[in-house]
């Protein structure tokens, strides 16, 4: 198993940092899957421990100037590592003006992703900082646990309004109750509501876009006004919204009535899918 990559372009470094920053805000520890074309950050919680699933894809060509890897074997040319994204972010945070960053898979005190940064200096001297971020290698037999989650048949699919405004609303709602009901219909309406014994607050969005899906044919008999809803953990939702460091081009919210909420974020070629389970009532 070998991996090495080099980031040189300053905008790539900054973008990479922001993407990792977003991931680290929503996931404590996850699996990094390295393939010849793509980096994946995967979280696949068991249902008993929450059931959250996250799938994030970063095409390596967008970030790395040099990229070389050897997987476990020729036919399984992939590497699965368990990493703490926050450690990676901390390692590259001071590298925002670096000349280059090298990321290598090394065997030091433990298996490590070694991040080497050539820091900028006022003089011509080089100042090299090396961070050994410990990782653990996921054995081949565990790989099937980290396959791309299958998309369920959604009851409704809607483009989300600006994350920033949503975040403010959800932060306020967070003080009222622990769960929030997210409801949407095919008429471009999105409703966020939280209720307690004393009060019930809801925010309505109108005229949002319902993206058209290719496999939607069977849903044509649906009432466009009918809301599909799901009750989710408000803290998790707030964390997801506030963790965003990239302003994505598109944020789509898909709801399976009373089963699951699926957020799909896309920015250039980077995409992130977040499956948020509903709270049983």
């Amino acid at each position: 198993m070998r991996f090495r990559g080099k980031l040189v372009d300053i905008s790539c470094i900054q973008h990479f940092t922001r993407v990792l920053g977003t991931i680290s805000k929503i996931i404590k520890s996850c699996v990094l899957r390295i393939t010849p074309t793509t980096w994946y950050f995967i979280l696949s919680e068991k249902v008993v421990s929450g059931g959250v699933q996250i799938w994030c894809e970063l095409p390596q060509g967008h970030f790395f100037d040099e990229y070389a890897m050897d997987g476990v074997s020729a036919e399984d040319n992939e590497i699965y590592l368990e990493v703490v994204p926050e450690n990676l972010v901390k390692a590259i945070r001071t590298a925002q003006a670096a000349k280059w960053i090298k990321i290598k898979l090394t065997k030091k005190h433990a298996p490590c992703l070694t991040v080497e940064v050539d820091l900028p200096t006022v003089s011509a001297h080089s100042r090299l900082v090396v961070h050994d971020v410990p990782v653990s290698v996921v054995p081949h037999r565990m790989w099937p646990d980290y396959q791309e989650p299958e998309l369920p048949q959604f009851d409704v699919s809607i483009c989300m309004p600006q994350i920033k405004t949503l975040r403010n609303i959800v932060e306020k709602m967070k003080n009222l109750n622990n769960c929030l009901t997210l409801a949407a219909n095919y008429n471009g309406e999105l409703k966020l509501s939280v209720s307690t014994d004393m009060v019930s607050v809801s925010t309505h969005y109108q005229d949002l876009v319902n993206p058209v899906r290719r496999d939607m044919g069977s849903d044509e008999d649906r009432e466009p006004q009918a809301f599909s809803e799901a009750k989710i953990d408000i803290r998790r939702f707030a964390q997801f919204l506030s963790g965003q460091q990239v302003i994505p081009n598109r944020v789509i919210c898909n709801i399976v009535h009373k089963r699951v909420v699926h957020f799909y974020l896309q920015h250039e070629d980077v995409s992130l899918q977040y499956f948020m389970p509903v709270i049983a009532t």
Binding site: A110, V129, V133, P134
Partner: peptide, 16 residues
């Protein structure tokens, strides 16, 4: 658990 900790090493040139 030292194996779970990020090791950081920074090298400075004496000329600096």
């Amino acid at each position: 658990d030292p194996t779970k900790v990020v090791h950081t090493e920074l090298r400075l040139e004496p000329e600096e």
